[in-house]
Every structure is written in C-alpha cells, then in structure tokens.
Design a protein around this nucleic acid. Structure first.
Length: 258
DNA sequence: ATGCCGGGTCCTACCCGA
C-alpha cells in the first residue's frame, strides 16, 4: 500500500502537476488539500484515464480536500465528527478502502483570526483526537494524513523560519499533536528518519526554497498494525523545484500488505 | 520588516496562507 498526501494550493492551478506526479509515483491513494474549489468543480475526470476515481469535499476559494484512489472506496464522513453542523470549512474526508480507514485532513492554520482563530485550531485538534481514539478502538487499520499545520518538534522547522509564538509551533499545538501519538499512532516519516529535517513545505517568499528554510507540517500517522509493516516514508522534495509548484510537496508512506 | 509570493475573489484591491 502506497499512501500520499499533498497540499496542492489550488487543484485548478495544479492539475498537470498532480497528473504527472501520479504517473511517476503511482500511489494507491492520494489525499489532496487546499483544492480551493467547490465540490462540483473538482476536475475528477482529469485523473480517470490514469486509473483514479475521485471524491472531493470543497468550498469556494478556501480549504477543500479530496481523495484519489485506484481501488474502490467508500466515503464515510465529509466533516470531522463533533464539529457544529453549521461549520462550513471543508477540511476533512474519511474513507474506507481495502479494509483500512483513511482520514484526509487540512487542519486550521491558527494564525489568523486572533485568539479565536487559534482556539478553533485547538478545538479541531481535540475533536480529531476523539475521532482517532474512537477509530483505534476498532480492529480496522487506520491512517490519518494531511496538512496538520503543526511542526511537532524543533527539528521540524528551519531555524528562524517561524516566530516562537507562531500557531504551528506553540506549546498548546504541539501538546495536541503529541496526544495523537500517545493514542498509539506513529508519525511515519519521523519514525524512519529520526534525525533529518524532512521538510514538506517551503514558503514562496524570501527565497525559502533555495535557502532550504522549510517546515515539516504534512504528516502520515499510522495505527500500530500499519506502522509495523512500514517500509518507506518521505517527502518528495523534487516537486518543489518544478515550474509553478505548490508550496507543499507530496509526502508518501508505503507499507507491506497485511 | 507581517512584506517579500502566489493562490483566491464582490475584477481589482484586498484576504489568506504558514
């Protein structure tokens, strides 16, 4: 099983990049974030000839997530369970495929909207932990992947790339990410690469890419049964060097069949 | 230096990202 997650920063701008990457990498499942289009406008047909079917959860202009998969899958949730019914932010999709539950998410950044915006991020993370705990009660393997907007530890942010008060590194944010790990989930990239930065994002500004001032904020978390079979987990840095790239690169995790 | 770039949209100056 090869699972990938990629914040594409507008699927309409990045459809050729995604197509080319799918042809090269051939993941079984690709989770997309920041599609920045409404659900009905997602260009599902652009990936069909490559063997992928698509489901999107979108909204106008902001956020938006999607799943591309080569095998049949069923969408089980189109919003994070526990959020208010009137929360219209498109940040969550949950599917079942091949006996595995897969969550694709775009976690709130938490830097806009002042303390209320940060509180929304923390509340979202609390609900995610509740959902993860509930799913881990089942025997079904679980993968949670996406743009978490969290640098879990100092190694995950280039020195000077962020203020210590940034929502991506604040202690309250990191504590909630650790809670996910303490539930029994494994951070796939960090598990296989304990010492290297393994950035997944470089800002468009200030020469962040040529200076390698990156962040590791896109993650794949695996339940114990999947983590035991993990064979590879890495960001695909080459994507950041292409023409008109997203500011994020795909993060890919592979494990052996159970 | 919260602007530098690059998406988006009430079409064009402004919001948002991280």
């Amino acid at each position: 099983m090869k699972l990938a997650t990629w914040n594409v920063n507008s699927i309409r701008q990045r459809t050729p990049h995604v197509r080319a990457w799918l042809e090269r990498a051939r993941p079984d499942v690709l989770l997309l974030q920041e599609i920045k289009c409404e659900t009905a406008a997602f260009p599902a047909e652009a990936f069909r000839d490559l063997g992928y079917t698509a489901e999107a959860v979108g909204q106008k202009a902001y956020n938006g997530v999607a799943v591309l998969a080569r095998r049949p899958f069923a969408v089980t949730h189109r919003a994070l369970p526990g959020l208010p019914e009137d929360d219209a932010q498109a940040r969550y999709i949950e599917i079942e495929t091949d006996g595995i539950t897969v969550i694709g998410l775009y976690l709130p950044n938490g830097n806009s909207g002042g303390e209320a915006g940060f509180a929304y991020k923390l509340a979202w993370m609390d609900l995610l932990a509740e959902r993860a705990a509930a799913l881990l009660q089942d025997d079904r393997p679980l993968a949670i992947a996406g743009d978490f907007n969290v640098c879990p530890a100092p190694l995950d942010a280039a020195p000077g790339a962020l203020s210590p008060t940034d929502a991506l590194v604040r202690p309250e944010t990191r504590a909630r990410f650790r809670r996910l790990l303490w539930l029994g989930l494994t951070d796939a990239v960090r598990a296989l690469h304990p010492r290297a930065p393994m950035y997944s994002f470089w800002d468009y500004q200030a020469g962040a890419w040529p200076r390698d001032l990156g962040l590791r904020i896109d993650h794949v978390l695996l339940s114990p049964d999947l983590a035991e079979r993990l064979t590879a987990a890495t960001p695909d840095r080459a994507e950041r060097g292409r023409e008109q790239p997203s500011d994020h690169v795909p993060v890919v995790a592979s494990w052996e069949a159970g």
